[in-house]
Design a protein around this nucleic acid. Structure first.
Lengths: 104, 104
DNA sequence: TCACTATATGAAAGTAGTATCATATATTTG
DNA sequence: CAAATATATGATACTACTTTCATATAGTGA
């Protein structure tokens, strides 16, 4: 067994947490939402739907799920609910993948 | 519609590719495999199984899938198949997520 | 060649994620 | 209060992913 192998077992929980976040992001529409909210904070559900040309209910499911996982935050004002990234840091996932040659 | 919105539509293919890679990685065992191979190249299937305390066939499925997606590479020598990361760059995904506060 | 080991394969079962639709809730305006 | 609008919810169907198991393949050494 290699040197740091034990660390890897111990880090099981770390990998579970990371996978939980990665799963929430590993979807084309979700990535588009993240990119969109990186460019501009506080977009309404409708604005996101229109921009991505996607049905309201589906976008709502995506948004709520990502909020649940701590990727997005939202606040309500009147009829509208405004969504933003909780951390712009998350967009680095995308650039990280773009820098990888693995998808060639 | 906001300024760069068209770019986001145009980048649809980019998001699909990125999601394809992210999906391959968004699993605790796969993350552990990646971390393991980051520490040490050229591990056999059995070494990985033993270290992660996981069944051979399951690990094999994971490895083959990640190889298919260009995340891993392998070469055979005798009975053994040695797997490595195709790009160590991919491990930055993990550190990127760790730096995010989203999973708190 | 036979037995042994390492890995891969493929089917089946189990589980999780995604899309769709109909409808509920909440807010605003007339 | 009724109508209109924005968003959320929940059930269902659909699709994709994961695990398990039995077995195949391929290489090694007696």
């Amino acid at each position: 067994m290699i040197a740091e192998a034990n660390d890897i077992k111990i880090n099981k929980e770390k990998y579970e947490k990371a996978a939980y976040i990665l799963k929430a992001v590993a979807h084309p529409t979700r990535l588009a939402i993240i990119q969109l909210l990186d460019i501009q904070d506080n977009l309404t559900v409708n604005e996101i739907c229109e921009t991505l040309n996607c049905e309201q209910s589906l976008i709502s499911h995506h948004l709520i799920n990502m909020k649940l996982r701590g990727i997005l935050k939202s606040h309500k004002d009147g009829l509208n609910v405004y969504y933003s990234l909780k951390e712009h840091e998350i967009t680095k996932l995308l650039s990280c993948i773009e820098n990888c040659e693995c998808n060639m």
